[in-house]
Simulated assay, not measured.
Amino acid sequence: MKIQAAVLREMTDAHPFAVSQPLKIEELDLDPPGPGEVLVKMKAAGLCHSDLSVITGVRPRPVPMALGHEASAEVVEVGSGVTDLRTGDLVVLVFVPSCGHCLPCMEGRPALCEPGAATNTLGELLSGQRRLRDKAQAVHHHLGVSAFADHAVVSRRSCVKIEADIDPVEAALFGCAVLTGVGAAVNTAEVKAGTTAAVLGL
């Protein structure tokens, strides 16, 4: 299918971005979902500093790349092997797909999934595939999501099903901003109920 997506073709820190325009809205070809994958229609996407870090080259990634990773979406179609999601389900997309089989995943630390981190760095889905194309050229996925688009194909392991009555705009924040903030507070700082804490840079 044809989709519209924000594509980065060259990393740059040339300011102002309003002039250099490193992201361009382009028409891309999106292949159907493969085994263990899901076609989603974006409902909302947030702009994260990680997106900016890819644009400026602070976090180098292969280009061309369709950016965006903090999002909520509606399931449109599921690939073979996906039995727990259905058309119309609302999902939050997460920036590290968890394979469920590597040591960090088995230890209950899916955010440190080794195959997920490896495929994210390469601009692939967890399957090792790319479903985005510009004519014959592959376009890389950003963190397995590429949320700055009207549709995307993602790994089932990048989707967390949520209730249909949750505001999709608020839900999008859980894909990264809430996930990292809560993770830092609960797992790293070990903030407990009743604790007083200072929050910097909110």
Score class of each variant (00 low, 15 high):
Lys2Ala: 11
Lys2Met: 08
Ile3Asp: 05
Val7Phe: 03
Val7Asp: 03
Thr12Val: 05
Asp13Leu: 04
Ala18Leu: 13
Ser20Trp: 06
Pro22Phe: 08
Leu28Thr: 05
Asp31His: 10
Glu37Val: 09
Glu37Asp: 06
Val38Cys: 08
Lys41Glu: 15
Met42Thr: 05
His49Val: 02
His49Phe: 13
Asp51Gln: 09
Gly57Phe: 03
Arg61His: 12
Pro64Thr: 11
Pro64Met: 14
Leu67Glu: 02
Glu74Arg: 15
Val75Thr: 12
Glu77Tyr: 00
Val78Gly: 01
Thr83Tyr: 11
Asp84Gly: 04
Arg86His: 15
Gly88Asp: 13
Leu90His: 13
Val91Asn: 01
Val92Asn: 01
Pro97Val: 10
Ser98Cys: 06
Ser98Asn: 05
Gly100Leu: 11
Cys102Trp: 07
Leu103Gly: 01
Leu103Glu: 14
Leu103Val: 10
Cys105Thr: 06
Cys105Gln: 03
Met106Gln: 15
Met106Ile: 01
Arg109Gln: 09
Leu112Ser: 09
Leu112Lys: 04
Thr119Met: 13
Glu124Thr: 10
Glu124His: 11
Leu126Gln: 09
Leu126Lys: 11
Ser127Gly: 12
Gly128His: 08
Leu132Gly: 04
Arg133Gly: 05
Arg133Ala: 14
Ala136Trp: 07
Gln137Leu: 09
Gln137Thr: 14
Ala138Met: 08
Val139Ala: 03
His140Trp: 05
His142Trp: 04
Gly144Pro: 04
Val145Phe: 00
Ala147Cys: 03
Ala147Arg: 00
Ala147Ile: 00
Ala147His: 02
Asp150Leu: 00
Val154Lys: 09
Arg157Phe: 09
Ser158Phe: 05
Ser158Ile: 03
Ile162Phe: 04
Ala164His: 13
Ala164Arg: 15
Asp165Lys: 01
Asp165Asn: 13
Asp165Leu: 04
Ile166Trp: 12
Pro168Val: 12
Val169Asn: 11
Val169Phe: 06
Glu170Tyr: 10
Ala171Phe: 06
Leu173Lys: 00
Leu173Phe: 11
Phe174Trp: 04
Val178Pro: 03
Thr180Ala: 04
Val182Pro: 08
Val182Asp: 09
Gly183Pro: 10
Gly183Val: 06
Ala185Met: 13
Val186Asp: 08
Lys192Pro: 00
Ala193Leu: 14
Gly194Pro: 10
Ala197Glu: 00
Val199Cys: 02
Val199Met: 07
Leu200Ala: 11
Gly201Gln: 02
Leu202Gln: 01
